[in-house]
Amino acid sequence: MGENRVFSKLRSAHLLALVLIGLALVGELLLVDGFLANQKKDGEIINVAGRQRMLSQRIVKGIAINHPEVEADISEWQARHVWLKDDLEGNPVQQDLHALDSLVYALSRAARDTAAGVEQVNLLADEFLSGMDRIVDELSAAAAGKVDRVQTLDRWLTALTLGLLLLVLLFIFPPVVRLVRRQYEHIDSERRAQEAARHTAEEAVAEKEATLQELYALYGTLDKVTLYASLSRDGTVVHLNRQFRDLLGTPAPVTGRPFAEILNRQEERQLRMAELLQQASITPWRGQWAVTLASGEQRFLELCILPTRRTGGEVNFIVLATDVTEQQKSGE
Rank of each mutant, 00 (worst) to 15 (best):
Y216F: 04
G117W: 05
A24I: 10
T308Y: 03
V93N: 10
A72C: 02
E89K: 14
L18Y: 01
E190G: 01
H199G: 07
N47G: 15
V205T: 06
A116M: 12
Q95A: 14
G34C: 02
G131L: 06
V121A: 09
V315D: 07
L129W: 12
K61D: 02
V254M: 07
L84Q: 09
P175A: 10
V291I: 15
L301A: 05
E207Y: 01
A24N: 12
I65T: 15
R11E: 11
E268I: 07
G34M: 13
K40I: 05
G90E: 03
E138G: 00
E326C: 02
L240T: 13
D42M: 14
N264L: 07
P175Q: 11
V70L: 08
M132C: 05
L263E: 10
D133F: 06
R257F: 12
D323E: 10
G62M: 12
I172F: 04
E28W: 06
V238F: 06
S130C: 03
A321W: 09
A111L: 09
D96G: 06
E326Q: 08
G43D: 07
Q52L: 15
E275W: 10
L301H: 05
S281Y: 00
Q270R: 15
I74Y: 00
R134I: 11
L160M: 08
R5A: 14
Q270A: 04
G145S: 15
L160S: 08
R309L: 09
A110F: 04
V315I: 15
G296S: 00
S281L: 01
R233I: 15
L162K: 08
T158G: 13
N241Y: 11
I65C: 03
V291R: 00
L15V: 14
L222Y: 00
L55D: 10
L139D: 01
R286D: 02
K41D: 06
S56H: 05
L153R: 07
H239S: 14
L29N: 08
L169Q: 14
S295P: 05
G117I: 03
F317A: 12
M1H: 04
Q243A: 13
K41I: 13
V319R: 04
G220Q: 13
L277E: 09
A204E: 11
L23D: 05
Q327G: 14
A99L: 11
D137F: 00
Y219T: 14
V238M: 11
T161Q: 02
L107I: 02
K329Q: 08
E69K: 00
G331F: 01
D73W: 07
H14E: 14
G249H: 12
L212W: 13
L36Q: 08
V180A: 13
V177G: 05
M1D: 04
E190M: 08
S281G: 08
V324W: 06
R112C: 00
A260W: 09
A110L: 10
R233F: 15
A141S: 14
L277F: 14
M132S: 06
A143H: 09
A110M: 10
R109K: 03
L124T: 07
G50H: 05
D323V: 06
T292N: 08
L107S: 09
H98P: 03
D87N: 14
F35G: 08
H199P: 03
F300N: 05
E127G: 09
L240Y: 15
S102Q: 11
M132P: 07
A110W: 04
R51W: 11
A144R: 14
